[in-house]
Amino acid sequence: MAKTVKILEVKGLRTSFFTDEGEVKAVDGVDFSLERGKTIGIVGESGSGKSITSLSILRLIEESTGRIVGGEIMFKGENLLQKSKKQMMAIRGNNISMIFQEPMTSLNPTLTCGEQIAESIRIHQKANRKEAWVKAVDMLRHVGIPSPEKRAKQYPFELSGGMRQRVMIAIALACNPELLIADEPTTALDVTIQAQILELIKKLQEEMGTSLMIITHDLGVVAEMCDKVAVMYCGKVVEYADVKTIFTNPKHPYTVGLLNSVPKHDQDYEGDLAVIPGAVPSPFNLPQGCRFAPRCPHARGICREELPELLDSADGDQVRCWIYSEKWEKQEEEVR
């Protein structure tokens, strides 16, 4: 068997925002890795830091408010955080591309779809206007847009939401990137259109051998698309595992709670949904110890005092929970 190559390795990534009320550690020591040609899902609720993680990889954090304050982002063995601004520009859209949640607002309203795809080709492939245009029309055809010559000359507002997301995908894949980051790519779309787009991403990934990182809050999308999953809570990865493990044998109490609280369309219910009590803590007032402890049904003394490390288990999975450490048995069980 050929040795698997890690295309992306994020180690101890920390990104903070500096506000009048203090520092918000949006991403606070995140580790995960992605093998070439595979798909990783970053899952979490709002405030988990999943989107900031993805923006940090391309170094797209707005400088006036936030900054990457620590860690490494190894892309094909090189640390992106040590690249110059110019080097990063050559990587963006070329080696690593990104698609965003809102196809409505993510396209420039004053440029035609064709121009927006061609721009990326002209920057990275030294093509002239005409060559780039031909390639842009080709890309539109490739992402399943009917009569691409006509569509290329249209403005984003003339297209439906699903079509616009196809244009976004065409822009992202125009230069055949090795890594595609998709930040909530289907959240703004209707389910039948979501199914089309997910199918398209899968097909193109297979054809082009792209590695894929999907940021989503939708566990269904994760199950559908991903090989590996990193579950995030309050700026930290709490569980990193194979997709099968996450859905059949989740370890972290948060992952378990999350899975149980999603109402499923293909399963019958009796009575109430299982809930995670309480709410996500304020980023200015994070609990000492495990950040999930105040909402965790299993929390014991140590959980409230000390932040658990990401523990490796035998199968290569990782979980950030005291339950899986040797210290756990020494903890007194609490009556809840």
Partner: peptide, 14 residues
């Protein structure tokens, strides 16, 4: 039928 089938399921077996 199409609507139901389009929803991504968390049930990996089914």
């Amino acid at each position: 039928i199409a609507l139901l089938s389009a929803i991504p399921s968390t049930n990996l077996e089914k």
